[in-house]
Design a protein around this nucleic acid. Sequence first.
DNA 1: AAAGCTAATCTAAACGTTTCAATTTTGTCA
DNA 2: TGACAAAATTGAAACGTTTAGATTAGCTTT
Lengths: 339, 339
Amino acid sequence: MLDVAATASVSVATVSAVVNGTAPVSPELRGRIEDAIAAIGYKRNAIARSLKTGATKTIGLVIADITNPFFTDVVAVIQDVLHRAGYAMMLCCTDEDPEQQEEQISLLLDRMVDGLIIAPAGDDHALERVLKRAGIPTVLIDRINHGIAADAVVLDNQRAVLDAIDYLVGLGHLRIGYISGSHDTSTGLGRLAGYRGALENAGIPYDDALVRIGNFREKDAYHAAMQLLVMPDRPSAIFSANNLMVIGVMKAIRDMGLRCPDDISVSSFDDFPWADVFQPSLTTIAQPVQAIGEHAAQLILERLATRMDRPPRQIVLSGRLMIRSSCRPFYGADRSTVA
Amino acid sequence: MLDVAATASVSVATVSAVVNGTAPVSPELRGRIEDAIAAIGYKRNAIARSLKTGATKTIGLVIADITNPFFTDVVAVIQDVLHRAGYAMMLCCTDEDPEQQEEQISLLLDRMVDGLIIAPAGDDHALERVLKRAGIPTVLIDRINHGIAADAVVLDNQRAVLDAIDYLVGLGHLRIGYISGSHDTSTGLGRLAGYRGALENAGIPYDDALVRIGNFREKDAYHAAMQLLVMPDRPSAIFSANNLMVIGVMKAIRDMGLRCPDDISVSSFDDFPWADVFQPSLTTIAQPVQAIGEHAAQLILERLATRMDRPPRQIVLSGRLMIRSSCRPFYGADRSTVA
DNA sequence: AAAGCTAATCTAAACGTTTCAATTTTGTCA
DNA sequence: TGACAAAATTGAAACGTTTAGATTAGCTTT
């Protein structure tokens, strides 16, 4: 910039003025400066700028697992609207581990991101503490964390699962296995609550033996499903609390020599783009990923634009049950064992 | 840092020395400084540091589509090893559009990333120019761009597709449809070359009508596949040049009221984690995503560490044909139309 | 005890911007 | 023409680090 100023024989202040359009400058100087910029090939140094202005025009995104299509769908739309607003995005994955999460957030904070969008892992008070100290706009997505007063966009998980289980009950299923997510996430808990609620509504007693924790991971879910499948009176249907886990469930079913939906019905949270071209065609709960991403990005941009602190806003969206062919009516134990 | 220096009554230089461990400092001062740091809750400002040192400890990652499982798998491992080395990652998507690509790279360059990992879109000379001017370590992944002399890690696409088509030919298929990726990417071209090579080896004449461009996108591939399926003498097998497109192909097959593999065989580039639990169980070419990610990260880290400019290194890995059940032997037109 | 070393510490100048306050230029009006 | 206001331009001080090079302190050596 000094070079530009020199070649155009003006002061750096004037160059800055034309580069940023922050002050009026005569057409003549503007011309000289623009020529100089073109001649030198000058590009403003965003680091120096950030140091002075205190804003990096970058926001940090912390999710559990970039390999999970749900997250990537959401990330894609967030990235899109953020980029349109001139913001870059730094992406970190926690692998569902609160320790890694703290480390990653620290990495982002070091680099002075202007804001944070987080799908929190775990529910201890560490995150709360870290965020309070960071003091930058934060929006929680997918999950909310106890005690953190921040903008958030989440799903009505309980309602969504309740509908899905309701559907299974309506099909005649009484023993419904449930592969649960981590119980220290709001999603894990909310979805489980939906399961319990649906059973209660239907007057079916809750059986602890039917719910197994899969930690939102395929591998854990595989073992969890196995435990369900070897039971003498195995469930006639299994619901999986997310997309990764349902793959594990399907593998367990295959490895036990069973077939879906003939021998056992399966349903899960999160939809797949390929769900209706492969068999069994899974009945799932589709999340409005587009809306989630847009709202999240919008919320943070809003906070960033107006530093006013209106009370945190929490946006709750609804899932949609996509009924396909992975669930069959169930008429009782005798027929089911024959299949 | 001045605050810390003040409370410990030492100079900022000494504080810097203990924070970075760059110079010996007596145990006494070190103690005082560490106490002061703890008391104040001081955290070093990475922006200021970057301004001075010229390094941001951040590398930019530019891919076509974060929604594509192949890319996310690779990104996940890159992120992992980069993070282990103290680097953060800024992620951008080009949506296969060279213009967006230029914009995104500019965004990253503005923020002074130390290095770039790119899966290039298009093959004009714009990218070459931009990278030359940027003058930072760059490694190309998945695709290489004509004229760019940079480290790269790619697949032997030609060989991989050749094997897959070979397999189809071995099954008796003579009319094999091919849904191609963009012809201005090295992957699109390389894979197509594999197709042609296999036909040539088998003495099957190349028929232009059987190859349709799907641009690596599901939607485009759907229409491309449709064109193939409405042909009076439609192909008995279709190969799709990537994962996104094969979904489009399957949808087209379904919408035409056909079944795979009964009416038509299907195979594609890129594997799916769920491929062997859903029907049809796709025969695919699995890419070594772990190795791709590790090599890419390693290459850039190496360049970053030793500024020496050894000639660009190009790592070529091999795909693996995963034979499943989406391809059937083909005995001739008469049997195939009956199915 | 003075000189000469070494090790520890400090001073101050960068890095490339932004921005406030001060200065110069231009224009208007009496 | 001079006075004054408005507009355009500039000087210089930040922002929070790092890092030469200067300085000081603490030893040894003769």
